[in-house]
Structures are given as C-alpha cells and as structure tokens.
C-alpha cells in the first residue's frame, strides 16, 4: 500500500493565489465544518472553551511579511508587503508521508493522485507528520489517528451535490477566488494554464516531494508614488471661512501628497 504509484491518471490538486488571498480564514472554517462531518472521524478540539484551546485542522492560514532588501522592519525600505499564506496538503507526487507509514494506512491513489489516510488502519504513530515538510498532517488527539486534507474526496465525485458544489469546500467558500481546483496533470486544464501564465511555483522544491499543489506569486505592484496618476476628486471648499477654512488649509496641506 505505501509504495507510491509510478504514475497517476490525474493529478488533482489546488492552485492557491497568494496575490488574491485576503487572509479571511473562511476556507479554514468551511474545511473544518465539512470534514468534521465527512471523511473519517470528526476533527476534534481540545479544551475548546478553556484557556488553551487547540484542535485538528486540515487547512491553516499563515501570514508573512516580506521585508525588502535593506529594510529591518516592514515598511522601512522599498516596497514591503504582507502575504496571507494558506497551507494544506499538497498531494505530493513523491509523498514521503506515504512511504514512511508502517501500516499501509497512508496511500496515494493511482487514479487521481489524492493522498489519503485509512483511519481504520492508522496506529497513530505520527511518523508521517514528521516526514511532511509542510505541516500538512495533524494527529487527532481524541481518536489517535492522523488527519489530513482529502481534497474533499467526498465532494468532488459526489453526484448528490449540484455540479457547482463538486469542488473542495475551501475552493467553493473562498470569497476572494484565491483557490482553484483541477487536474494539474492535464496541461490544457484551467489550473495548468493559470500556473503557466502566472508563474506558479512549488513549496520547498529542495525537499524533493514534487508537490502537486501550486502557488501563484503576488503580482508585481506599482510603486506607491505612481498612484499620483489617479487624481482625487476635489471638492470646492473656497467658500469656507473661520475655523473651517483653517481646517481645510491644514488638511489639504498635510495630506496633499497622499490624497492627490
């Protein structure tokens, strides 16, 4: 079971747009909601209303700041920026989490490349989580079995759902359209085209896992100064007198650069 298939018919996966993600965590919540009632055991929480709440999630959003060269803190030099960074299982082609599994509970499907855990076989040794560089696997502490993204295998083939809903829950939920789902093994699929056009990349290629999921880089930004080409609508305040006139002068002077 834990021998990886040499090829898979499809490479189903996600493409995540780091330019578009606003870091709202909606996908995290919809993932938890769908998967706590779906595949395998529930995603348990420990001490949910106490002082130290924690629980198992299959999708997490980190937020990074990029400090440009020459800067010490964000904003101190050049164009700094904040990037919201969703992270879930990348359904790697060379998935080490599968080969280290002693029981055969972890496997990669030859048909579509999805990496799954058969929870009835999992002994909860945790070695697969140790082998995953991306932190995509979390042990469920209530059940003692390993949980991971299933690519919503119980949605994407589910004919009881409307066609539009047959995508992973996170993709369906994302209000910003930052998550795309499709067959990355088919060069003509929408996701493959997207990856080509936007320069999609692998996370930690040096780990040799050949992740299927791809990330799209933040788009290049126009420099702050160039925003000056958009003229702000000016109200006619020439009839202001007294205090109002003073406030008008003070504000126009102080914010002339930013507002115009």
């Amino acid at each position: 079971m834990t021998q990886l298939p040499t090829t898979t018919d499809k490479k189903l996966g996600l493409v995540i747009d780091l330019d578009t993600c606003v870091g709202c965590h909606a996908c995290v919540i919809s993932c938890k909601e769908w998967n706590t009632a779906g595949y395998g055991t529930a995603l348990s929480d420990q001490d949910p209303y106490g002082a130290e709440p924690s629980g198992s999630f299959l999708n997490r959003i980190h937020t990074f700041e990029i400090v440009p060269d020459g800067g010490e803190v964000i904003g101190s030099a050049g164009e700094a920026r904040v990037v919201h960074f969703p992270k879930s299982c990348l359904h790697c082609e060379d998935a080490p989490c599968v080969t280290v599994c002693p029981t055969g509970a972890s496997y990669k499907r030859a048909a579509d490349g999805i990496v799954l855990v058969d929870e009835d076989m999992c002994i909860g040794c945790g070695l697969c989580a140790w082998s995953c560089a991306y932190g995509a696997r979390e042990m469920d502490l209530a059940e003692g079995v390993m949980k991971k993204c299933t690519l919503c295998v119980d949605r994407i083939y589910n004919e009881d759902l409307e066609e539009i809903d047959r995508v992973p829950s996170c993709v369906r939920t994302c209000p910003a359209g930052a998550r795309h789902y499709g067959d990355l093994g088919d060069p003509s699929s929408d996701v493959s085209v997207l990856v080509r056009e936007r320069g999609g990349f692998d996370l930690m290629p040096e780990q040799g896992n050949k992740p299927v999921n791809k990330y799209l880089p933040p788009r290049e930004r126009s420099a702050l100064g160039s925003a000056a080409s958009v003229p702000a609508v000016q109200e006619d305040t020439s009839d202001a007198t007294g205090l109002l006139a003073w406030i008008d002068r003070a504000l126009s002077g102080g914010s002339a650069k930013g507002a115009s």
Binding site: T63, F64, D69, A80
Partner: peptide, 10 residues
C-alpha cells in the same frame, strides 16, 4: 520579494 518573516501564526 525580499526576506520573509512570520507576521501572524495561523
């Protein structure tokens, strides 16, 4: 883009 720092944990 530059040096990466963690701003917020998930």
């Amino acid at each position: 883009l530059g040096r990466v720092r963690l701003l917020e944990r998930p």
